[in-house]
Nucleic acid binder design. Structure first.
Length: 307
DNA sequence: ATAGGTCAAGCGAGG
DNA sequence: CCTCGCTTGACCTAT
């Protein structure tokens, strides 16, 4: 299995000057400073993306989820409008070329506001806009239009009627361009009332062939009646040949801290259980608060060789 | 330089 | 009805 981490490299972010792809601003600042400042932040973000990719390679990390905050307020403009657009494109190409050279797999996980199943038109429009933005950035990185460069989301909401919501999800999915549809995946939820692997293997997979990202931790709260092994197997079968299935893994912070005031769904700082890939070849993204440090510690504790 | 209050979006859960 | 949490805490101002 190959392990990855998400969005932030704590070591690089703590360095001086800091290396991060997360520069952003609040609304008030965006209104005051506008596109030139958004452009400046985006340029720094995409340049630093290369630095994180280099760090990953130097530490044998081949799976990395990029932040969705590369472009502050991306929903409010076209990338071409940014003053530094040309330079931004070059920096993205550099980052993408590096990742490809290193065999490093990059992905996106747009946020919880992407609800393609919503009955509200403006919610769906915003979602489509955000997904298209992610697709566009993947293209600018030079990433393939395949699930190798996945854009992963949740169904988003059920409104008390999963079947109707899934049908709406599928109809709205058809409005997406190839930059998104070729890369889109769906992840199982962490609430019993929401979407299990079984739900996702139904309509979304049957109608559109959407692969399922299996989240081990979420499955503990929404299992659709399947064991972990069976759910993982089912999810893995939805991936096209030649593309290694991706999973998410976290442990429970509640157990880590032995504190039952913490919600059981909360992600742990570190991974303290051995991950069981059930015999499958997987890319496993660690969703741990300690980011790359959690990955390093897991390797030391569970994958150390020679002893 | 650090602390504390503030901050886009949609939804469901818990108080 | 309000707050929290989620992909991911980061930004901004006052001290």
């Amino acid at each position: 299995m190959r392990l990855g981490y998400v969005c932030i490299n704590m070591e690089l972010q703590a360095s001086k000057p800091k290396i991060t792809c997360n520069r952003g601003m609040i609304r008030r600042t965006f209104l005051a400073k506008g596109l030139p400042y958004a452009s400046e932040l985006a340029l720094q973000n995409v340049k630093d993306l290369s630095e994180i990719i280099r760090w990953n390679h130097a530490h044998d990390v081949e799976v990395f989820r990029m932040t969705s905050c590369l472009f502050p307020w991306a929903s409010e403009y076209q990338l071409e409008q940014l003053p530094d657009y040309e330079e931004i494109c070059k920096a993205l190409k550099v980052a993408g070329d590096l990742a490809k050279k290193f065999g490093q797999r990059l992905s996106f996980h747009p946020g919880p506001f992407n609800v393609l199943s919503s009955p509200r038109e403006h919610v769906v429009n915003n979602c489509i806009k955000d997904l298209e933005h992610h697709g566009e950035v993947m293209d600018l990185l030079g990433m393939p239009r395949s699930r190798w460069a996945k854009i992963n989301i949740h169904v988003g909401a059920s409104y008390g009627d999963k079947e109707t919501a899934l049908d709406r999800w599928c109809r709205n999915y058809e409005r997406l361009s190839d930059t998104v549809t070729t890369r889109l995946t769906l992840e199982n939820d962490d609430k019993a009332s929401m979407y299990s692997v079984v739900d996702l293997a139904g309509v979304p997979y049957e109608r559109h062939g959407i692969p399922i990202v299996f989240d081990f931790h979420h499955h503990r709260f929404c299992d659709g009646g399947l064991s972990e092994a069976d759910a993982l197997q089912l999810a893995a079968c939805t991936w096209p040949a030649g593309v290694r299935p991706t999973c998410h893994y976290s442990d429970s912070k509640r157990i880590e801290y032995n504190d039952d005031t913490i919600r059981p769904q909360a992600h742990s700082d570190y991974i303290f259980n051995r991950i069981d890939s059930h015999g499958l070849d997987l890319d496993i993204v660690l969703e741990a608060k300690a980011k790359e440090r959690a990955l390093m510690r897991y390797r030391e504790e569970y994958l150390a060789t020679g002893t």
